[in-house]
Structures are given as structure tokens and as C-alpha cells.
Write a protein that binds this DNA or RNA. Structure first.
Lengths: 199, 199, 199, 199
DNA sequence: TTATAAACGAGACGGTACGTCTTGTCTTATG
DNA sequence: CATAAGACAAGACGTACCGTCTCGTTTATAA
């Protein structure tokens, strides 16, 4: 709640800084699923990472900042599938990569926590939107060979059911479910566009 | 983190208890959007509701319990639309009622918070599932005149995009978006079933 | 610290009142050495005595009042030795009865607690003085056959070492110690008085 | 009742720590006679000393620990009289110094409270015994020039009446009373020893 | 190579909240 | 209608974490 004083963060070029930062993030990723977002206190994290609380504050003045780093430097966030001209195949692969991403416990917790905070923390809200836009752009990138661009609404129509199943229904996202999502999604996608050529 | 001792809650039949309980819930609903879930401390709530912290603990041993009550006794959760035989119309109306419900700030925050907690709090997880099932059942109820029953997957396909737009994209759910969702949704709904009769 | 409102105490003539009162006092006597004066809360006492806290407040508006009763209705406070004309014998017997009295754990704790409170609680101070005077008077009574009256100073010279040994040194009061006290005490007692006639 | 976790106390070498510690002890000494031992809550003390409760717990994990410090670092506890070869004079002076010490209100209350606790708190019991032994040793020290050593029993015979008068009779310890105590005490002290040479 | 700057460890401190306990009063329902 | 059960306000308890602030000590880069 309280806005901490923003001292300058450690110079990232310094190798010592890098070492500390990476060790802490790794420990945080281990800890997060264990204790939950609420339980990931700086006190605990400092102890586990053999670091002073002060050091944590130097690197991440806000706990939200730490969560952002956890999300953005996610372990396999970069593992997007290959682009292709088959829209159905690309969309399916992209959804599966999304499913894989949010199956990493630390990522799950971090995303949910940021989401819950977004209503009252502009930084979190902005980060959330930015993450969404990144993934949206990535999808469009993958679909470039197919000559298709996805609008905001279409994007949400595609990923919405998957995340709802994971976060809200708290059930598994089966391949069959993904297929159903994609099939339905294709029906309204660019009606009368190039998509039809693949059917 | 710590499991608080579960003493028996105040007898709900007692009018004094009811008075206290309702006043606190009302204040909590006002406070939640102001200060966020993290800022809704028992200390603050007690002060604003002119009540002792002890009293809060008596009524809601866990802060999650308070959130459940906030969700379940939501201000207008019962305002479901009318049943009908036109599947498109019913689905659209139901989605709009969902949108209305989640637009109440206190409800928004409460739901998001419970969702974020669900990974590490079995009670929250269970509550979340139960809420989903209730709404699912309600939808099926509305669709009974149409002779249609919605499966779990179909249910998620319907509401998923709407909540994703609200919570993750953090954008407005327009009527057009709802129409798009419903249109897409109808295509795969019970292929060859009674739905076709309305097209 | 807070002076509770003085509602009227239960009529002591009522046999039911007597029963309750005695049961509570008995339980308190058991409890006192177990949990200490600080641990003898009304909540605990009420639970153990199967009585409502209200009832305790009705009988003893102040915890000091309860302690007074514990001291004054001590189990064997009345067991003074026989009067006699041999000053040494009477004094020795009286000291031994004193030793016996404060060896009862509940009595010990109660007396020490009242003593510690006396500096800031006039009631306790007064009660303490009164108890001392009673015992002083009792001693003089025992010594009447010997034709001796003990002054305040002489009284303190007699019992002081014994209680100091018990409470401050926290050591045992042996018969030898009592003999030493009495011997020393006799030397300055009424120099040249009737005491000499017994030597 | 509950044994608080014994974290390590603040490093006494740190000057800031010393400052805090001394300020708190000074305020506690002022407060003790005002509010009594029961009223000397950490909450009150913290407020008066402009310190957080947490700071108090860091320095004195137990309230008993605070009382010990109050007693041991008493304002003028070290002001023993001069040694000498005149036993009567030394004993008298020593008793007067005892009287002076226990007349400091904070010391009075602290000693009485620790005494009352000693029955159920081993730490208090041990501290009490240690304080007694210290004073006993000091007395023997003063009497060294006189070639006299006081046994435990003799020690109690000397100081017992004085403290009994102060704490139990709650009366003043006059010079005359001290003279009476010493006179009586000398009669049985080392019968046939060097003491006689001073008569 | 030595400065010099930065990161870091250690830990005291003021705050705030936690979940619990006891106290004294007051309300409600019941027998 | 008196009495129990127990809700309530008040406030202390001992603990935890937060964010800040010294202090020294190490580590890395620059002179």
C-alpha cells in the first residue's frame, strides 16, 4: 500500500548484482507455490536466499516488482510454437503453449496475484495489460504466414475459455477442450476470409 | 497461513448478531473497492464498523470466510433473467447479468481475491468451484424451456471470454462483444440439436 | 485497576449462595498454587468451578476480595496453640503455627500477592495490616497466662525472621531456626520483666 | 505463563541500544510506583518511553527480566557503608542502607513483585536468592575488619525484622527499631566470640 | 595498486497488523 | 421474571512483517 522510497536499483552490469538477483528469483520461484503469494514475505525470502531483507528492497522496492520479474523472466515463456499457414494448427499449438506456461506453479501464482492486485495497483494493471499484448502480438506473429491478423475481441475469444477453465473452474485443460475452443473460434474468425481456404 | 481456532460462530438467530453481521458486511462492501483486498484489514474494518476486532473474529474466523459471505450474499446475485425458449436471447441475457454482477466493485475484488487464494487455500478453491456450479445450474435452469442442457465445457466456452475480458484484458465488455461470444458459442452448441430451430 | 461497579453481593444467609461460594473458594485454593496468582483468572476459575463468570463477579467484585477470603477463611488459620505461662514454649508454638499456616500453598500465594498489591491498593494494604493485627492479638492472648504483653516492635522482631526466611531467602524454616529466633527474641523482651522468672 | 521465545538481546555495546535501554529503565522507574507492577504494561511503558512495544520485547523478553534490571541497576544499590571493626556500628549502618534501598518506590515494588512471582517463576526465585546472597556477601565484607562472618541464619535474623516491618506491617522503620534489632541480634551472634570485646 | 563507489550483512527501530486472551458490561432467550 | 448463555467493547498479550536507518565489510571498477 505504502509507496516505498525509490532509491536507485543496483547496477545490473555488476556481476555480483546479477548473481544475487538470479539466486533470489530462483528461490522465489521455488517458494511461491509452497507458501503462496501471501506467504512469500521478504523476511522468508531473505532467509531462504541467504540475503538481507535490505538487499531485497534494493532490488525490488515493491513486492509487485518482484512478481513482474518472476512473470517476465518466466522459465520458458519464450517457447512459442513455430509459425505456420494452417490457422487451426497454429491456434491449437499456441493455446497449448499458453496452457504449458500457466501450468508452471510459480507463474500461475504470480499471474493470479498480479491480476487480483490490478484493480488497486496501477502498476499491476499496466503490467497485466502489457503481458496480454505481448502474447497477442506473438500470436499474430505466428499467424503471419497464414495472412491472418487477430483483433482484440478475437484474441480474447480464443484464450478466454482456456484461462477460465484453469483459474475459475479449476479444472484441467484437455486437448479435447482446446480442440473445441479452436473449432468454435474458427467459425466466427474473419467470416469469408482466407481462413476458409484451409477447410 | 496459520489455521485459526474454529470456535463456534455467533448464533445467527440472535437479532443482535444479525445487526452486527449486516452492518459489518455493508461496511466491508464499501471498503473493499477503496482499499483493496490487501488493505481490508480487520483492524480497519473494525474501526470503520465501530466494532471490536474480536467481534469480527467471532463472526468470520478467517478473512476468506468474510469474502465468501461478501460473494454469496452479493447485492443482486439473485437477479437472473427470465427463462425462455430462445437460446440466443437467454444466453445473451445471462451473460449480461454476469457482467452486471462482476461489475459491482466489491464483488469483483472479492472474486479475484478468492481466485488468487484458491491455489493455496482449499476452502477458497472449493468455494470458487461451488460458485461456478451454482451459476452453471442457474443457466441450465433458464434454458430448460428451450430443451437445452449445457455441459461443463460449453459452459466455460460461454463465460470464459467475458471474464477474461474483464479480469485479464481489463477492458469493457460491450454488448457487441457479448453478441460475438454468443454467436460463436451457438455454432458448436449441440450440433444438430433443437438450437437449429431458432436460426 | 478499574473499580468495578459495586452491585450488591449475594445474601450470605442463602444456603445456595453458601454452597456456590464454598465450592468456588475450594477450587480457587486448588488452582492458586497450580497457576499462580496471575493465572487465576475469573475465566479459568469459572470454568473449573462450573459457574458463570457473572456469578464470580457477584460474589467477589474484585479479585482482591477473593484473595482476602482465601486468606481469612484459611483452612487451618484458627489452629492456634494452647495458651501457657512458659513464654518460650508459647512463642515457639506460635511460630510453628505461623510456619504451618504459610506452608499451605494457596495461603502462601495469596499472602504474597496481597502484599505485592498493598503498595497501590489501599484495600490490600488495610487487609494486610488487619491480618497482622489479628495474629498479634492472638499471640498476646496466648501469652496472657504468662502475664506478658508484646509490643508492635517485639511482635515484628519475633515473626520477621521466619517470614523473611520463607519468602525472601526461600529456604526452609527448621525447628533449630525457630529456636534461635525465640532465644534471641527473649533476651530483649521486657528486660527485667516477669520473663526472667522462667529462665 | 507462556515462555516467550528467547531471541538474542540487543548488543549492549551499541550506543543506540544503551540509550534506548537507559531511557526505558528510567521511565519504568518513574512509572512503577505510579501504576503498580500490574499496571506497568508494555503498552503503557512503550508509549511513555516513546518506544515501540517490540523494542521492549527485544530488550526484555519477559517482564520479569525488566524487573530484574530495575532491581540490579537500582539507583543507589552500591552505596554500602564503610567497613569497620565495630560490629554494632557496621550492622546498624548496613540495616540503614537496606532501609534506604527499599525505600525507593520502584525498588520496593519491583522486589515485592518478584517475590510474589518467585513461587511460580523459577527465574524470579533464582534472582531473589541471588540478590539475597549478594547483600549477605556485602555484609560479610563490611564485617571483615571485625573478624566476624555471618551465617545464613544470622543474616536472616538481622534483616528479617526490618523487611517484615516495611513490607508486612507496612510501618516505618525507625532508628530505634533498628537499634532494637541490632541489640537483640548481637546477643546471639557468635556466643563467646570477638563480639563481646565491643560491649 | 590503490582508491572509490557500490553492494551487501547485520541488526535496531517505529509502525501496523495479527490472532488470542481476560475483563466488566449488557443483551437475549429460556425454563 | 430471574438466570444462563454469550455477544460485545476495551485493551493487553506476544509475534510477525514492513520499510527505514545506521553501521561496518566486502567486492568490483577506475584512477
Amino acid at each position: 500500500m505504502k509507496q516505498p522510497l525509490h532509491r536507485r536499483q543496483p547496477t545490473s552490469s555488476n556481476p555480483r548484482v546479477q548473481r544475487t538477483r538470479n539466486r533470489v528469483l530462483a528461490i522465489a520461484r521455488e517458494l511461491l507455490p509452497e507458501v503462496g503469494a501471501g506467504g512469500l514475505t521478504y523476511a522468508l525470502l531473505a532467509e531462504r536466499a541467504s540475503v538481507t531483507r535490505q538487499t531485497l528492497y534494493r532490488h525490488w522496492p515493491t513486492r509487485a516488482a518482484l512478481l513482474f520479474d518472476l512473470i517476465l523472466e518466466g522459465p520458458d515463456l519464450g517457447t512459442y510454437p513455430e509459425p505456420g499457414s494452417d490457422v487451426r494448427a497454429v491456434a491449437t499449438a499456441w493455446l497449448k503453449s499458453l496452457r504449458a506456461g500457466v501450468s508452471v506453479p510459480a507463474m500461475r501464482t504470480a499471474v493470479l496475484t498480479v491480476t487480483a492486485q490490478a484493480d488497486h495497483d496501477p502498476d499491476s494493471a499496466q503490467a497485466l495489460v502489457r503481458i496480454g499484448e505481448d502474447r497477442h502480438a506473438a500470436l499474430n506473429n505466428l499467424l503471419e504466414p497464414a495472412g491472418v491478423r487477430i483483433s482484440d475481441d478475437e484474441y480474447t475469444l480464443l484464450y478466454g475459455p482456456v484461462l477460465a477453465r484453469l483459474f475459475l473452474d479449476r479444472g484441467p485443460v484437455t486437448d479435447a477442450f482446446i480442440d473445441a475452443v479452436v473449432s468454435q473460434w474458427l467459425t466466427t474468425l474473419h467470416p469469408g476470409s482466407a481462413v476458409g481456404s484451409h477447410m
